[in-house]
């Protein structure tokens, strides 16, 4: 799959990335869509005191990284979808390569490297300044057509 291409269906991508970033829990955490290179989306979360996991160090809670990887990975799948469909995370693994630096924004870039008929496979990297200096790495799988209910209201606003 050539991930340098634009999204398979730009309307699907633009709509669903908006839906995913706008989900209540993502709004709670302050996730923002930064942009995409080909079919690789990047999201970010700014450091915030209420996202900290260890108050003596100020390091962001691993759970925030988990949500960021899950969300960015799901958006990377939507870049490959030909039509609207509902997807759901099947499994997720995060390797915490090093502690995030307190006060610094965390970025996450994800790619869907295989879209099979029923399952999508993704990998993601979290970093501060460059993907070459990662703080966490995530791999995930998503079930396609996980629900007959669309994630958006009919008409795809």
């Amino acid at each position: 799959m050539n991930l340098n291409l634009p999204p398979a269906n730009p309307a699907v991508y633009e709509t669903l990335r908006g839906v995913f970033v706008g989900l209540p829990h993502c709004v709670t955490l302050g996730f923002e869509y930064v942009g995409s290179e080909g079919r690789l989306p990047t999201l970010k979360v700014d450091w915030r005191e209420d996202l900290v996991g260890n108050p003596s160090t100020g390091v962001i809670h691993g759970g925030v990284i988990t949500s960021l990887v899950d969300t960015t990975s799901a958006i990377s799948v939507t870049a490959c979808l030909p039509e609207f469909e509902t997807i759901a995370t099947l499994d997720l693994r995060i390797d915490y390569l090093k502690a995030a630096t307190p006060g610094k924004t965390i970025f996450c870039r994800a790619e869907c490297y295989r879209l099979a008929s029923q399952v999508a496979f993704t990998r993601a990297v979290c970093f501060h300044d460059s993907p070459d200096d990662p703080i966490a790495h995530g791999v995930a799988t998503f079930m396609r057509e996980s629900s007959p209910l669309p994630m958006i209201q009919q008409g795809g606003q």
């Binding site: 989900l23 209540p24 829990h25 993502c26 709004v27 709670t28 996991g53 809670h61 691993g62 759970g63 925030v64 988990t66 949500s67 960021l68 990887v69 899950d70 969300t71 509902t86 759901a88 995370t89 997720l92 995060i94 629900s147 209910l149 669309p150 994630m151 958006i152």
Partner: peptide, 23 residues
């Protein structure tokens, strides 16, 4: 409500479930 990840079903956010378990 702030922990929701699918507003149609509705369902908890998968990342939230992960964070809850990790914590």
């Amino acid at each position: 409500e702030r922990n929701v990840g699918n507003t149609v079903l509705p369902a908890l956010h998968g990342g939230l479930i992960g964070g809850f378990l990790e914590n």
